[in-house]
Each structure stands twice: as structure tokens, then as C-alpha cells.
């Protein structure tokens, strides 16, 4: 059964054995290892494994010597010489030109975005007048022009008790402040407005 101190130490051991803990963090680990045989065994095991890996640095490889490196240097330079240095410096100037173009594009984009923001602020939905659509597409009749306001999201505010719309009292089913379909139907029923189809057929020939 491991104690919390053992668990804390074991969690730090991989970094402790490699010397990757600062002195303040490493000291409690060192003190615990002095007292705990089990954790010390674990640390030794970790250190042996890490040490074996470190010894790989000293392992020579076949055919790797200064001659190979000199040949590699020549091979790299041969490949590099294909790319002319002038080409490289041209790439530098092309890159600076591209950066300049990117900067100009970014400024233009920002200006456009700012302008769009201003325009949309000025013509926001709240400030827009309610749209109106003609009641029909047929020829004008003799009566007053009937306009059905667009029942859009914007509803004109009216005072409490103000239940008159265009001189007509609003009915309970009417859309507040707008001439809704029910109101229009009641006007048709009263004969004050002719529906578009009936009006088109009932007009006297001229």
C-alpha cells in the first residue's frame, strides 16, 4: 500500500532522474527516497533505463565518419547551387512585395467593413419605415387606394386605449396597429373594399 508521499514521489520520478526538476521541487523527492526503499528501487530502475538510452549517444554507426560528412556537404551544396542565389534574393523581394500587397488588402478590407458597419447602423431595421404593398395589381378603381401594410416585425407603438386605426375602430382580433387580414375581410364584407378578383370582373367596360 503506497502512501500519498510515495504517490507524489513516483509521479515526479521520471523528471527527477533526468535532472529536470528545480531544486525546491527535487529536495522533497530526495528526502523521501532516503527513507522509502520501494520508491528508491523504482528510481533506480528508471535511472537504469534512462542511462541505457543515454549511452546510445556514444554508439558509433557504420560508415559514418568525416568523409561521409564532407561528401554530404558537397552533395548539399550541389543541390543548393541549382537554386541561384539571385533567385533566393528575388524570392525575398517577391515576399516583401507580397507582404505589401497583403497589407494594402487588409487595410481596404477593414475600411470596407467599417463602411458596411456604418451603413447598416444608419439603415437598421428599427429606423426603416414599414414597407407597404399594393392591395392588387389590377387597374385603379374609383374608390380610395387600398394599401395593405406589410405585417413585418415592426409594430407601431400606440397608447393604451388608442383603438382607432385610420378612422376605424380596431376589433379584438386585429393585429395591433396594422390592418390585418381579419380587418381587411371585415371591410370587404361591409362592401367598402372589393376583392381583387371580383373587382376585376365587376368593373363596367369602358
Amino acid at each position: 500500500m503506497s502512501s500519498p508521499a510515495c504517490e507524489r514521489t513516483l509521479a515526479m520520478l521520471p523528471l527527477f532522474v533526468g535532472g529536470d526538476l528545480d531544486a525546491a521541487t527535487a529536495e522533497p523527492v530526495r528526502q523521501h527516497l532516503l527513507a522509502c526503499l520501494r520508491c528508491r528501487g523504482e528510481a533506480s530502475s528508471l535511472q537504469r533505463a534512462t542511462g541505457s538510452m543515454r549511452r546510445l549517444a556514444a554508439e558509433p554507426a557504420a560508415d559514418v565518419d568525416d568523409g561521409m560528412f564532407a561528401a554530404m556537404n558537397r552533395a548539399i551544396m550541389d543541390q543548393v547551387l541549382v537554386t541561384d542565389v539571385a533567385e533566393l534574393t528575388a524570392a525575398t523581394s517577391t515576399m516583401s512585395g507580397r507582404r505589401w500587397l497583403e497589407s494594402v488588402a487588409a487595410v481596404l478590407l477593414l475600411a470596407f467593413g467599417f463602411w458596411c458597419g456604418q451603413a447598416s447602423w444608419q439603415s437598421s431595421v428599427l429606423q426603416r419605415a414599414p414597407m407597404a404593398t399594393p392591395a392588387n395589381d389590377g387597374p385603379a378603381n374609383d374608390g380610395p387606394a387600398i394599401v395593405v401594410p406589410y405585417a413585418g416585425p415592426r409594430v407601431p407603438q400606440r397608447l393604451l386605449g388608442d383603438d382607432v386605426q385610420d378612422g376605424y375602430p380596431l376589433q379584438p382580433g386585429d393585429a395591433a396597429g396594422l390592418m390585418g387580414r381579419e380587418r381587411l375581410r371585415s371591410l370587404v364584407d361591409e362592401g367598402m373594399v372589393l376583392p381583387a378578383r371580383r373587382r376585376a370582373t365587376s368593373q363596367p367596360p369602358r
Binding site: F16, G19, A26, A43, Q47, A57, D66, A70
Partner: peptide
């Protein structure tokens, strides 16, 4: 004995007894 932390090495100080991991090759 409990393990001693390994000394820190900077990349430019890396030298090993078997061969060099860094350095300038001869024959240039």
C-alpha cells in the same frame, strides 16, 4: 544509494566519448 539527477547539458556542450555528435567535419 538513491539516484542522483543527471547534470544539465546545453546542446553545444554535448560531447560523447565514442564520437562527436557535433563539430565541424574535416575535408572541407
Amino acid at each position: 544509494m538513491f539516484p542522483q539527477p543527471a547534470p544539465r547539458q546545453s546542446p553545444k556542450q554535448t560531447q560523447t566519448p565514442g564520437h562527436e555528435l557535433s563539430g565541424i567535419p574535416a575535408g572541407l
